[in-house]
């Protein structure tokens, strides 16, 4: 697929459709991939990469890129396209300044999970019959089950459908995928409160407030974050007490509620492996249950559940009375 992408990108550069390309750049190791902008065919040939580790959601970079002159080519995976559409709905990206080629994604791998299987020194990963063939520097080839090494976000993939594009690399679009993404949330909901508290205490206590979750999140793309804004009253570049991080994570999840497409980047980048997606999914689950199913970025709908209402919405007290064990 990488070769086809490079070939198409070169064509589009050549015929003047675009003047630069948003994609992923090779690093020192195969798993060491970063989003990057390419300007020439040579750069593409040399550094452009598409492999099992190109998980990064590039839609957020397009906020700044589409404000620049010229037109950029962006390769969007299904989950990236949801984020992009949501950003379009919020008028954050200029659709006219980007040419989108939708690319399928069979799921991306988590390096740590591969390492955990005892495989090191990886040089290549290919897909075969639903399994992954991992080649190492020792010229060994290990066959691993995809599901075992998937990133969390790919394990619970919600859709293989690209919701916004100018063309599709494969010519055909994927479909929504049945998934169990709320199971884990339901599991936590079902815990007794003390256990829930202990769980989150264990998770959130590890936060080092590096802001990686905030920096990678396409919904967290405010011109200036409320936590950096002295006028907001909650500015805390240097945390004053432990509470600040709790506040940060709750408010961050609240601010993206209704806009979070569940792309899972927050959990992918967290160096402390805090399952931040479980906070976002909790809001999504609640909104689906209380206000009807809603998937951010799926349609052109601009009013999401938090900026909408019905006369007969449930009262807040429902939180404490609705069903579910452990409540």
């Amino acid at each position: 697929m990488q070769d086809r992408m490079i070939a198409r990108a070169k064509e589009l550069l050549e015929n003047g459709t675009v003047d630069r390309v948003m994609g992923w750049k090779k690093g020192e190791f195969i798993y060491d991939v970063t989003p990057a902008v390419f300007y020439t065919a040579d750069e593409l040939e040399k550094d452009f990469v598409m492999n099992a580790f190109t998980a990064a959601n590039v839609s957020k970079y397009l906020i700044a890129e589409t404000k620049k002159p010229g037109r950029i080519l962006a390769f969007l995976k299904p989950c990236d396209s949801y984020s992009f559409r949501q950003l379009m709905n919020e008028h954050r990206v200029d659709r006219d300044n980007v040419y989108i080629v939708g690319i399928p994604s069979w799921g991306k791998a988590d390096m740590e999970k591969i390492r955990a299987l005892g495989i090191t020194g990886i040089t290549d990963i290919t897909e075969k019959d639903g399994d992954l063939l991992v080649t190492t520097v020792m010229r060994e080839t290990h066959a691993v089950k995809k599901y075992d090494v998937y990133l969390e976000k790919c394990k619970n993939c919600k859709s293989k459908r690209i919701v916004v594009y100018d063309e599709l690399l494969d010519g055909e679009n994927g479909e929504d995928v049945p998934n169990n993404r709320f199971d884990e949330v339901a599991k936590i909901e079902a815990m007794p409160p003390d256990e829930r508290f202990a769980f989150w205490r264990g998770e959130l206590s590890r936060c080092i407030r590096c802001n990686a979750c905030r920096n990678v999140c396409p919904a967290c793309s405010c011109e200036k974050c409320v936590f950096d804004n002295p006028k907001s009253g909650v500015e805390n570049k240097a945390p004053a007490d432990d509470f600040e991080e709790n506040l940060f994570h709750i408010i961050r999840a609240y601010h993206v509620a209704g806009r979070c497409t569940d792309c899972g980047e927050c959990s992918r980048v967290c160096p402390q492996h805090i399952p931040l997606h479980l906070l976002n999914r909790k809001f999504i689950k609640d909104m689906n249950e209380l206000y009807g199913d809603y998937q951010a970025g799926e349609t052109e709908q601009v009013r999401h559940p938090v900026t909408n209402y019905r006369d007969d919405d449930a009262e807040p007290g429902i939180v404490y009375t609705r069903g579910g064990s452990g409540r």
Partner: peptide, 22 residues
């Protein structure tokens, strides 16, 4: 505050008076 505004239209969506324009 225009320096901080994202222009995301969420405020206009909830304004009952249509007081917000872009």
């Amino acid at each position: 505050d225009e320096l901080m505004c994202n222009g995301c239209s969420q405020c206009a969506n909830v304004c009952p008076y249509g007081a917000i324009t872009y």
